[in-house]
Structures are given as C-alpha cells and as structure tokens.
Nucleic acid binder design. Structure first.
Lengths: 126, 126, 126, 126
DNA sequence: GTGGTCTAGACCACC
DNA sequence: GTGGTCTAGACCACA
C-alpha cells in the first residue's frame, strides 16, 4: 500500500467464519513483518478504513489497538496511527510468527508420534 | 484407552476459551490417527462420557457426530459408536492433519517472503 | 435364497445409520416383488435369522410382522413363516413400489419447477 | 419470501414424525434451488425464525449450519445468514437433487428387474 | 443486534 | 441399554 492511499477490499483475504478484527490484525502484521508496510508509514484512519472496507469502525479500532499492544503500531494523538520505527519490535514479531508456525508443526508431528521430517514426508505422499 | 474403559479428565487437555466439542473432536481424531484408538474399538457411550467428563451429553454428541461426518467413527443404532474399520479413512485423516500443518508453515513462510527453510532457521535464532 | 437355506450377511446391504428392521423389510419386500423369493417359500425362523445375521431377535420379529401386515408373509403357528401364495398381494406390492418411486421423482421435479423430463435431463448433465 | 419478511408457518409443510431441522433444511434447499430465495438474500435471524415458527432457536441453528456445510448459506459474524452468491454451489445442489431422485428410481427399477420405462408404466397401470 | 456454545433435562425410536 | 431430537434458557464474542 503506497503512503497516503487507502485500503481496498483486495488487500485482505477474508473468511466470514472467523472474526474480522483477528484476520485484519494477522494480515497487517504480516505486511509489516514482510516490509510491505515500512516503518513510519501512516495508516488510513479508522473512519476511512471502516468505510473503504465496508466494515464497522469498532472492528478497525480493535484491530489497531491489538497491533498497538503488540508494539507494531503507534498512535500520535491528532496525527494518526503509524507503523512503529522500532525495528526491534518488528524483528520480534517476525520471529514470533516463525516460531508459532514451526511449533505448531512440531506439535502436530508429536501428536501423531512422528518427527517433523516424517510429518513433512507424509504430507507430500501421493 | 483400553477397550471397555471410560475416558477420564486426564485424557484431554482443555483450553476453556475454545469450544469444548472442537477440542474433543481434534484430540480424539489424533488418538485415532496415532493408533491409540484402534479400528473397531467401541467408544464410551454418550452418557458415560458426558458424566465422566462432567460435560453435557449434547456436547459429546456433537463431537461424535462431527467425527462421524469425517468418517472416523461409525454409529450402530442402539449399540453405540465405534472407530471405523475403514483404514483408508484413517489414513486420509492422518495425511490431512500432516498436510494442514505443512501448508500452514508454507503459507506463513510465503507471506513473510521466506522459504520454509529460512523460516525454520529464523524460528531457531537466538 | 434357495429353500431351506439361511440368510447370510451378504444377502443384505445395510446402512448403519438407518433402522435395521426397516432395511430388512424393504429388501425382503423387493426380493418377493422380484420373484427371488417365490410364493410359498418358507423363511428361516426368527431365531435362525437373528443368529446368522448377528442381529437382535426383536429386530427380525419386527421385520416379519411388518411384512405380514403388508400381506406379503403369512405365519402358520408351529410351522413357520412363508411367502404368501396370494399373487394379488405381491402384485399390489410391486405396483406400490413402482408408484412410490415415480411419485417421489414427480414431487422432486415439481418442487424444482421442472417437468419429470427436464429433471431427468438435468440429472444427466455434464 | 420477499426480503425483509419473516417466515410463517405456511412456508413449510411439516411431518411431525420426522426431524424438524431436516425438513427445514430440505425445504429451504429447494427454495434456493428453485430460485425463490435469491443469491445474497438475508435469511430471517435465528431468533426471529425460532419465534415465528414456534420452534427452539437451536433447531433453526442446526438447519442453517447444515445448509452452510452444503455451501448454500454463508454466515457473516454479527450480521446474519445469507444465501450464497456462489451460483455454482446452487447449481451443484440442483443437480444433486435431480440425480438423487433419478438414481432412486433407477435403483428401484433395477431391484425389481425392470427398466426405468417399465417401472414408469407399471406405476401408471390400472 | 447477530450467530455460537453450553447446560439441564424430556422424550423418542431402535436394539 | 444406545444414539437422536427438541425445548428452555443462559452466556459469550463479534459487528
């Protein structure tokens, strides 16, 4: 998303059966982790976002608040919400995403009595 | 679980913030996939399970019915619910579990612009 | 089934999710309608049938009683249960089976706003 | 049912001897297949439906969830339940209804040793 | 407001 | 005894 532009519905892949704010949170988080949203970028306002995504403003608020809690966003009163300039926070987020994914795979492997390698092989079978 | 025995609370690890029936479903599913519950084994009845796990009968039913839809359980009218003897269904389930785990990892890697190997390395850092 | 022989499990296609007695009734009924079980044939006794099919005797009883109600079987006390010699009853049964099948198709067609011919064509598409 | 209106008891033909949720499922399914309920239409809420049909909310939920599993309905959290906009799913459903009806007739014909045409003729006799 | 989960308990058909 | 359906009503998260 170029600076100054607004989100569009195509920026997100939404599954109606899961909480919207959760999906927005995850997807913005990975945009930041990947670098698509650069440090210091100003995000569209809650109201703008809500209307462009045709979503309830409280849903957007919840999203931004959650990402603030994770120290990935910072809000300056009266100016808006920005991607943090603390690269450490972003790094931490990247690692956490990676660890979660890897741990889930390890867990699944363990619960089936397999090593991660065996699980990987099983997934590729046939 | 040896045949003829009932579940106990220790058989399941429960997270109060997620639907119970979903957790039961997942955990029984992995027991079957792992072979802990052998084909043909009779599961404790809905009522027995409900009382031993201190849970409502309908919650147990929802669990059993969901597993039946996945073809992992078979119900014989008036007799009870059994682990399927169709080993193919069990195999399919094992592979599906493996694939889901692997795909999620691949997805996460891709969304961060990494290869699965790079993601794995990142998770192990520090 | 040759006279004097007993049923085996292969004589019936059973779906565990539907009442057994209902399935036995239907299938014996069509055997009679088709002529596989000829008028006057003696059916295996309730006890024999129950044990050879590994089924509860009451299930078999219910089956035979239902078929007696439909006048397809007659029981002579102390001698056993036989396929009726009243060909009229068998004919009626054949026609009823045919009518039920045809009416169901007509119903479905009507509920979709189609003629039976259109429904048939739709089923064959692609 | 025009949009914004609620169901009434006249919208459904109910047979007290069969599960209600099953009958609701079938009948809503054919309304969708027939086009009476257009893609995107919002269904009356679970509670509204429950009270207008004098039925328990969970019975309605079961109905809606079953239709969701068949991909004929979509639920948006906090907003309601809608007829899917995926016309392909609706087409598939129409064909499945047609095929089931036709196959049953073919099965019956076969089990009586007749062709479908002969069966049809038999049903019309007398 | 919406749907989703869960409880407590009745009643039924089937085996 | 078994599972299956239904009711009445509470509580929750989401929008």
């Amino acid at each position: 998303m170029p600076p100054g532009k607004n989100w569009t519905m195509e920026d997100f892949r939404l599954d109606p059966s899961r909480p919207l704010y959760e999906q927005f949170t995850e997807q913005i988080r990975t945009m930041i982790a990947k670098g698509e949203l650069e440090p210091g970028t100003r995000l569209p306002s809650v109201r703008e976002t809500a209307s462009s995504l045709r979503v309830n403003p409280t849903t957007v608020m919840k999203t931004y608040q959650e990402l603030e809690r994770q120290a990935l966003l910072v809000t300056y009163r009266g100016q808006g919400t920005f991607v943090t300039r603390e690269e450490a926070a972003i790094d931490r987020s990247r690692k956490e995403l990676a660890r979660t994914a890897v741990n889930q795979l390890k867990e699944t492997a363990k619960s089936l009595g397999l090593t991660p390698e065996q699980l990987w092989a099983l997934a590729l079978e046939e």
